[in-house]
Structures are given as structure tokens and as C-alpha cells.
Design a protein around this nucleic acid. Sequence first.
DNA 1: CTTGACCTTCCAGTCACTGGAACCCCTATC
DNA 2: GATAGGGGTTCCAGTGACTGGAAGGTCAAG
Lengths: 128, 128
Amino acid sequence: MNIGEVSKRANLPAKTIRYYEDVGLISPERRENGYREFGEVELNKLVFIGHARALGFGMSECRDLLALYEDDARESAEVKKIARNHLVQIEEKIADLQRMHGTLSDLISACAGDERPNCPILNQLSAS
Amino acid sequence: MNIGEVSKRANLPAKTIRYYEDVGLISPERRENGYREFGEVELNKLVFIGHARALGFGMSECRDLLALYEDDARESAEVKKIARNHLVQIEEKIADLQRMHGTLSDLISACAGDERPNCPILNQLSAS
DNA sequence: CTTGACCTTCCAGTCACTGGAACCCCTATC
DNA sequence: GATAGGGGTTCCAGTGACTGGAAGGTCAAG
């Protein structure tokens, strides 16, 4: 399988797949002409990484998850630990964004949004 | 005022203030010895930028807000428009994160998290 | 006169790609 | 055989918003 085919099947840009090779997540074979040759194993890894990235896992977490995925003697506790840590990060980000959302929507409500210069949003931003 | 003093007062790292000068958000005077000299105007701008960044506005939005802040003939409608656009971005990010949170917490619940290798989290990630 | 805190510039690294240039390979058609 | 196109390859640079560190200049106190 060429990179174009695996790109479609894993739903990842070819550039991204080359990048994943660069950083050592995958190691596809090479043909005589220099083209990468992907087998089912590499495709599965790419699908796996794509899903993990879509859940917001960082590259180092993907690396760890991939290692566990390939380790028949893994303990599911290890996977769960990584997932729970990530869940906490997500919750912190959501909390941050919700705090911003609350403040900002209050300010937007307070702003007339007309042709006059007076603006509670700017007032709040410049308040010390 | 030296950069250290303004750093404390605006609650921004000195490195960040220098960076803001690099990208043209502020233009403090220079003393004979090469040190930056900050006045109240520059301090106010930095406080303003700090608050805008804390609400998640990007640098180009900060630039636009700062220009409006300094424009006596502004219309609050312009400020409100920028703020509303940003609010939408925040809402999209929250929605993304909540989707991840939902999927991930379901998977975590389904995972025994013990010494056995079977793991619904890995199963889901590798599913095509 | 030295110490230490503060200031300066510049370069490199972060994260996870992404865009572009320049070039090679393979197949099909004229 | 020439050519056109749609693959593929490498390498370099840029993104956003800083951040760390090195190497060195400045200033006030003891």
C-alpha cells in the first residue's frame, strides 16, 4: 500500500503520516524506488493514533498507548491511568473555557453594541 | 519604570513583555543605557493585553481590541463583534472537549483497570 | 572592588503539524 | 519516444505565543 492509499484508509493527511514516521511512531518498509510500503500492521497503528489524537491525547501519550496496544502482557490499569490523567486535563481545559465564556458573555450582554464609543468590554479589559 | 517593575504590576513575565514589543504591540522608550522605560500608558496597554489574553483572545484580536481601546471615535459595535466571534470560538472548543470528555469517560467506565490485558479503551482506539 | 540583582540581545526549542520548492517515478496516451 | 498527469520523495521554513538559556552590559550596596 502506498502512502496515498493508507492516507485515505486511516483518514490522515500523507504529510502527517510522514511526520509520524519522522518522530518514530511508525516504521514502514521501503520499496526499491524509495516509496514507503505500508502493511495492515502499520495501517492499524495509524488508525489507532488517529483515534487517540481525536480524543485529544498528545503525542507522548499516543506513544505510550501504542506501546500498550502492542504489548500482550499489558495491564488494563496502565491504560486506564493514562486515560484518567488525560480526562483530568480535558476537565481543566473545559473549566478554563467556561470561566472565559462566563466572563465574556456577561460583558457582551452589558455592551450596547451601537455607534457610541462607551464600551463595558473595553472598560473591563483596561480595569486594574 | 523598568521592565521588572512593569512585569510585577501588569502580572506578565518580562520575557513576554519583550515579546510583545517584538511583535509591535507596545513601543516603550529607551534610556541611554539601553534599558526600556515604561510609562503609565504602556503599563495600561500591557494590563489590557494581559486581560484580553486571559479571556483567550489571540494576538491579532488583542491588536484589534487595543486599537479600538485607543480610538476615541470607536463604535462599541465593533468591539462587541470581535467579542462575539471569540465567544463562538470558545463555544466550539468547549463542544469539542465535551465530546472528547463524553467518549473518554464512557471508555474509562468500561475498563476494568486491573492486571488483565483486555481493555475496552484500546479496543475502541483500534476499531476501524 | 566585588557581589548580586537587574537589564540587554540573540538563538533555539516547544507542539503537531502544514505549506512549498525541487525533484523522482510510474502509467497512459499520442 | 516524448509528454502529461498524478503519484511519490526530501528538506526547509512557518505557525502561535511564548519560554529557556547563554553571553554579556549596568547599577546600587557594602
